[in-house]
């Protein structure tokens, strides 16, 4: 009994320590990034390259996900309408859930899977093949050269992609409404546009920006902390996506709560 309690306590303690270490590492990295931004000392050319890389990598998955998110939310709302007969809420229900909640979460998760995981793998591979040490040996600081451009690109790109995602979610919703539910797409879009969802829309963008910050800091942290060869990189990617997913739900809650105050 005593032994079981002890092992439980030590495993809980170990988990708490690991979480604290991740949060500490990511936040420290964030502060170092901010210090490199004011006054700006980063690689301007690298920033554009990162924007391009991040955008090209992630826009297909964001667009596809957004189409399906719109479609799924129409179906879910239509169920409810079928039960209650309140057709007036379709446009509003879809718009509200997509802009404020489900859109940012799903697009954030996909972005974390595509760009965040990729970033951890890329930096992790650079660490285990000593390319990061080679940069340092050439007297080039890895932070402004590798991390800051990725931070800016993820922050900027995810915010932009959220606008694109909202648009495509409307397209997906309109198509599904027309083809599956038998609800005229024009009525849906008109309802949606009249629902005064500007607050929800901007909240989605704020969430996206916060996700961009957390995804870049967490994925860079895990990438740069890789130890132990190929297995180490795989494990780091796994840790990075899990931490990012958790961070997305926590941030989603905090931003949603603060926004309504």
């Amino acid at each position: 009994m005593n032994g079981a309690l002890k092992s439980l306590a030590s495993s809980v303690g170990g988990a708490v320590l690991a979480i604290a270490e991740t949060i500490g590492g990511a936040v420290t990295l964030l502060f170092r990034i901010l210090r490199a931004l004011f006054p700006p000392r980063y690689d301007a050319e690298g920033v554009w390259r990162s924007f391009y890389n991040v955008g090209v990598k992630s826009y297909p998955i964001v667009v596809m996900t957004a189409l399906f998110v719109g479609a799924i939310m129409v179906i879910q709302t239509a169920f409810y309408v079928k039960k209650t007969g309140a057709t007036g809420i379709i446009g509003y229900g879809v718009g509200f859930s997509v802009f404020a909640e489900i859109g940012p979460i799903l697009i954030g998760l996909m972005f974390s899977g595509r760009v965040g995981a990729n970033n951890t793998a890329e930096l992790g591979t650079m660490v285990v093949t000593e390319q990061v040490d080679a940069l340092r040996a050439l007297a080039i600081d890895p932070l402004p050269y590798l991390v800051v451009p990725r931070f800016l690109a993820m922050l900027g790109m995810l915010t932009l992609l959220m606008v694109l995602g909202d648009l495509f979610a409307i397209v997906g919703a309109a198509l599904t409404a027309q083809l599956l539910v038998g609800f005229h797409w024009r009525v849906l879009v008109a309802d949606l546009l009249q629902s005064r969802l500007l607050d929800e829309f901007t909240m989605g963008l704020v969430k996206a920006a916060c996700f961009g910050i957390s995804i870049s800091c967490i994925s860079c942290y895990f990438g740069l902390a890789v130890r132990g060869g190929a297995t180490g990189v795989g494990r780091a990617v796994n840790n990075s996506v899990v931490s990012n997913a958790t961070a997305i739900f926590v941030i989603d809650f905090v931003v949603g709560y603060l926004y309504s105050l």
Binding site: T129, E130, Q131, A134, A137, A139
Partner: peptide
């Protein structure tokens, strides 16, 4: 160390080109 590294270069074992 940055000034030191500018006058003291290193060629790594696995070349480590980017």
């Amino acid at each position: 160390f940055y000034p030191i590294r500018r006058k003291c270069a290193m060629v790594f074992q696995n070349s480590t080109l980017f």
